[in-house]
Each structure stands twice: as C-alpha cells, then as structure tokens.
Amino acid sequence: MSTCERCGVEFHCAMADAPAGQKPTGAPGETPCWCTFLPLAIPVPGADAVGCWCPACLRAHIASLEKPT
C-alpha cells in the first residue's frame, strides 16, 4: 500500500506497489495505474515531482485547476 503525501490515507498505487520484478498494474492483471486515466495535473517523475496522491486528493487538485479564475 502507498500513503497519500497530501492527506495520509493509504491507497493502492500500481506504479509504486507492484511486486518486485513485476510490471506495475492498476488492478490484478491490468495495467496501467488508475491515475493515468485522469488529466495531467502534477509533475511525475522528475525533479519537481510530488509523491503519490490518493484518488480523492488527485481528483480534488484537478478540479481546482479546472475552475475559472
């Protein structure tokens, strides 16, 4: 399990939680991770990358980016 770096809740991150030697999966037997189906919103990976966020935090962040200013 992964821990959300924003709120601290535990969740499944296929990119981080795949067993050693196994390609990451979004669910048993499936790939890619659930987060790849959402709009790009935070830098991963790279120097400016944030850690994994749970589905609720990532969706809330995306919603805040989509609101008109």
Rank of each mutant, 00 (worst) to 15 (best):
C54W: 10
C33F: 06
C33T: 09
D48C: 04
R6C: 02
K23M: 12
F11V: 07
L40F: 08
P45K: 06
S2Q: 08
C7F: 15
P45A: 06
C4N: 07
C4S: 03
P55T: 07
T3G: 00
A60K: 13
R59K: 15
L40H: 08
H61G: 10
P55S: 04
A47Y: 10
P68S: 06
T3Q: 10
D17Y: 05
A18Y: 03
A16M: 13
P28F: 05
G29T: 11
G51N: 06
W34D: 05
C57K: 01
D48T: 08
P24H: 02
S64L: 10
C4R: 00
W53Y: 15
V50N: 00
L65P: 00
T25E: 15
D17T: 00
G21F: 13
S64F: 10
A27P: 07
E10C: 00
P28H: 06
G21A: 02
L38A: 00
A27T: 12
I62H: 12
A14N: 00
C54L: 13
A18P: 01
C4Q: 03
F37Q: 12
R6G: 03
A14Q: 08
C7H: 07
P68L: 04
C35T: 08
P43F: 01
P24Q: 03
M1N: 04
A16I: 13
R6P: 00
P55C: 03
T31E: 10
K23S: 13
L58A: 09
Q22P: 02
T69A: 14
A63T: 08
T69I: 13
T31W: 13
G21E: 10
Q22S: 14
W53L: 15
C52I: 06
S64V: 01
M1P: 14
A49Y: 05
R59P: 04
P19M: 08
I42F: 12
A16L: 14
A56Y: 05
G8E: 03
W34M: 11
G8F: 11
I62R: 11
P55F: 12
M15A: 04
P68W: 01
C13V: 07
E66I: 01
A56L: 09
P43K: 02
G46V: 03
H61L: 11
A63G: 07
C57H: 02
P39E: 08
T69S: 15
M1I: 14
P39H: 08
E30V: 08
A49L: 00
A41Y: 11
P39L: 03
A60Q: 15
